[in-house]
Design a protein around this nucleic acid. Sequence first.
DNA 1: TTTTTTTGCGCC
DNA 2: AAACGGCGCAAAAAAA
Length: 556
Amino acid sequence: MVDAEVIAVDTETTGFRVKDGRDYLMGISVAYYLGNLGIMSAYFPVRHESQNLDPSIIHSLKPILESKPLIFHNIKFDLQSLATIGIYPNQRMFCTQQLAHMVNEEWFSKSLDALAKNLLGDKKTKEEVEKWTHAFGWKTIPGDLMDEYARHDAELTLELFAKILWPEARGQELDQLWDTELAYIRLLDKIERRGIKVDQEFCKVKIDIGETRMQDVCDELGFTPTPTNLAKLFFEDLKLPVLTLTPGGKPCLDKKNMEEYDEILSHIDDKRARLVLEYRGWQKAVSALYRSALDHVSPDGRVRPNFKAHGTKTGRLSCTDPNLQQIPRQSSNVWNGDAKRSFTFDEGFKGLEFDYSQLEFRLAAAYGGVDSLLEIFAKDEDPFIPTAIEVFGGIEFRQSAKTLTYSTLYGAGQRRISFALGIDQSAASDVIGRFRELYPGIYSASSKATKLAASRGYVRYWTGRRRHFPNPEFAYKAFNSIIQGGAAELVKHAMLRVDEQICNEDCRMVLTVHDSIVLEVREELADSIIEPVKKLMTDFPQFGVKFSVDCKEWGK
DNA sequence: TTTTTTTGCGCC
DNA sequence: AAACGGCGCAAAAAAA
């Protein structure tokens, strides 16, 4: 290993809860090329229930694993598990999972098995190890029986990197993005390990209130409002009209239609549709939020979600276990309007949420070179007013203007816009035409992106990252990708700056949600960091548009 | 009984 | 000419 240029490393653990130590590393496999000896590999079982190597092997491995260039598949997880035995690599490293995503975000699966099968033609099955894990249980399998399986995974990681992914990344000029990408994943690792504190009492109270209310609603309705039961009441007993159909061809009973049914039923003083909406609101909040928060909380009272940097086509983050990117925003809803209070901060700290204003719209204005919009953004005026006046005929149509703007940036056509604005298709077509006349630059930037995506098969973001369109039929999504993905890249750079220049033990990054960053800051420090953070987040002069960031206290 | 698909809904 | 973009989770329904 000492003579190897680069070493592929894979770790085996007792389970997936390594961030809080409830699971831990059982063994390390390595693979590397050694001159004309070809590929070498080994497995070091250290914390199996039996058949371990002498524990001193960890001390021999530590200096090597903390200095040699390493390759992982899903580096964040392996670094977290290596930490459970006191190994903390901090040198140049690579991750085949992230590289696979950069090289082609369209690949269906980024699992090691799938990539090895598709890119290396690997045919090895897991039958052997599955036999042993079935016989012993994963956590109690003797170390020597894991040897072959573990070594194979390290070998695959090495070959994927050396034969396919790194050469391909260089070919696409993505290799120069890698250092930033690694720094970003390491920042996500830090955020995850820190976690965010859960107000468990608050969640429990909400669950109690919600369950009581849901039971009361069921009693009042005389049934549980499942889609089947609801369809029976609406269409068999009450003979209500079917508004729209689900993709499966059944009457659609989603929130929008339920609001409509509530309106119809209100004329005969029937509150049952409203009750169903309240039931669903509570059900969603209790199960996906309050109970989920308690289910995922570590013994120290914090949740440590999984941020995936390879989770989306555009390069945004995704988040699981729990998904902290879908915490309901502040509202007057009794069931979820104060949901942000589920997450709280250490004694003496407070949460500050830094949100970009109209980040994607500003990028669209920049790419489109729309001077009138650039001027409005420079002065931090309301960017939807011109559309409200010029397209809809008055300032009172601001909400419609906003809907039209974002729908268009998202690639909506006249059918979708007529639906969103509640107007017929010819009116929608009219409105779209006037919007194009108002901002021709945005329209031309968009069609340029579409053409490029269709002819060349990909577009590039401002960082050089690529978004591929193997099927020209979907090239219309290209402009949205440039905007959405470009925003994600911008936020990534902002996060790295804030982490490097602001964050420390008294100011910790705990969460990010697409266009916002949440810091847990010592109270007496809070006022002093607000302006520096805003400055770092908005300082991207190369776009020629002014960016704007608001700061508010979490959940307020 | 177990697994997969559908439906519905939270976020930006 | 026309196409809303990107996610994850849970309960219910359908399929195996």
